[in-house]
Amino acid sequence: METQDASQKVDEAVTGISAWWNNPETHEMLIERPIKILLILIVAMVLNWLANKIIRRTTHHGIERSQALITVEGRSEQQVRAQQLRREQRLTTLSNVGRSVAAIVIWAWAVLAILDQLGVNVAPLIASAGVVGVAIGFGAQSLVKDFFSGMFILIENQFGVGDTIQVGDVVGDVEEMTLRITTLRDIDGALWYIRNGDIDQVGNHSARFSTARLQIPVSVMADPDKVSATIEATAKRAIHDEPIRDLVMGEPEMLGASEFNPTYVSFRLAVKTMPGQQWTVARYLNHRILKDLHSEDVVLTAMDSVLVELKENNGN
């Protein structure tokens, strides 16, 4: 009797297990859903890998293409390298941003798809995310503005790390740049943190080339032809000197007398230089020109003209 009862219980257990196993819901929960979730994860990883590969390859081709274009233009080696480094950094930053955005979109889709497989109703979550996104957008408008401004600065190549730019009253070298903040180091060493959303106008002193513009004041008593010839000859010799010869991109251009008043005449000279090197070149040329003007006894101030007259009178 006991053996019969035990056999009956075993049969009932087997029947129950068979019924449970043959239940479509069991198959769906133990086989179909895990397989679907695994497929979702695999698809997400493959998509993420493909997106990263495509973005990296596009960035690499963009860098190679820009290098070829810059070289064809016949620029100097220093300028080619400067432009290349700037473009590499811009493309690398955009590449990082693109990979991050792609990863967020792909894995957000994967999480929602997995939750749907687990029986979670994702529609309210999507609706809530939209409401929360709108609320965050209203509460963080300045932050969103900073990020969009940073994106457009990078895409339009307005400036990059190492450039000398002017934002408002601040002039300095760009030390670091993110999608939200641009960091400038001014001439006094102060570090300025400027939100990209606050940059309405920016002047880039390092875009492709710069111009060293010199204003040389001399006395109205000086011979203008002699002064012009001395300044131009000195500048043409000086640009081949070791300190600045790799910083100059063209021959000096003598523009002549640009300002005239009762006490002095100002002569203007312009020289095209490497990006951001205009001040270095101008300082060196000022030194050389002043020295040669003294050597040629050019009258620089009204007081000099008085001294010259006194010297001539004493000589007579």
Score class of each variant (00 low, 15 high):
T3R: 15
K9V: 08
D11Y: 06
V14A: 10
T15I: 08
I17V: 14
W20G: 08
W21K: 10
N23H: 14
P24W: 08
P24C: 02
T26K: 06
E32M: 13
R33L: 10
I37C: 10
L38R: 08
L38P: 01
L39D: 06
I40M: 04
I40C: 03
I40K: 07
L47E: 04
K53Y: 15
I54A: 08
I55K: 02
R56P: 00
E64S: 13
R65Q: 10
R65T: 06
T71P: 05
V72G: 07
G74S: 02
S76G: 12
Q79I: 13
R81W: 14
R87D: 14
R87T: 14
R90I: 15
L94W: 05
L94F: 03
S95L: 03
S95Q: 12
S95K: 07
N96M: 13
V97C: 09
V97K: 06
V101P: 01
W107R: 08
W107D: 01
W107P: 00
D116S: 13
Q117P: 03
Q117S: 04
A123E: 14
S128G: 14
A135N: 04
Q141P: 01
L143S: 11
D146M: 06
D146H: 02
D146I: 04
F148A: 10
G150A: 12
F152W: 15
I153H: 07
I153F: 13
L154I: 09
I155V: 10
Q158V: 15
G160H: 05
T164K: 13
V167C: 00
G168C: 09
G172W: 04
V174C: 05
L179K: 01
R180H: 10
I181L: 15
T183W: 05
R185M: 10
G197S: 02
I199D: 06
I199R: 03
Q201G: 00
S206N: 03
V220K: 00
V220I: 12
V220R: 00
D225V: 12
D225Q: 11
D225C: 01
V227L: 02
S228L: 14
R237F: 05
R237S: 12
A238Y: 04
H240N: 08
M249N: 11
M254E: 07
L255C: 06
F260I: 12
P262E: 00
T263C: 00
V265K: 07
A270L: 12
K272L: 13
T273Y: 01
Q277K: 15
W279T: 12
T280V: 15
A282T: 02
R283Y: 11
R283M: 07
N286K: 09
R288A: 03
I289A: 03
L290G: 13
H294F: 09
L307G: 03
V308D: 10
E309H: 04
K311Q: 10
K311D: 11
N314I: 10
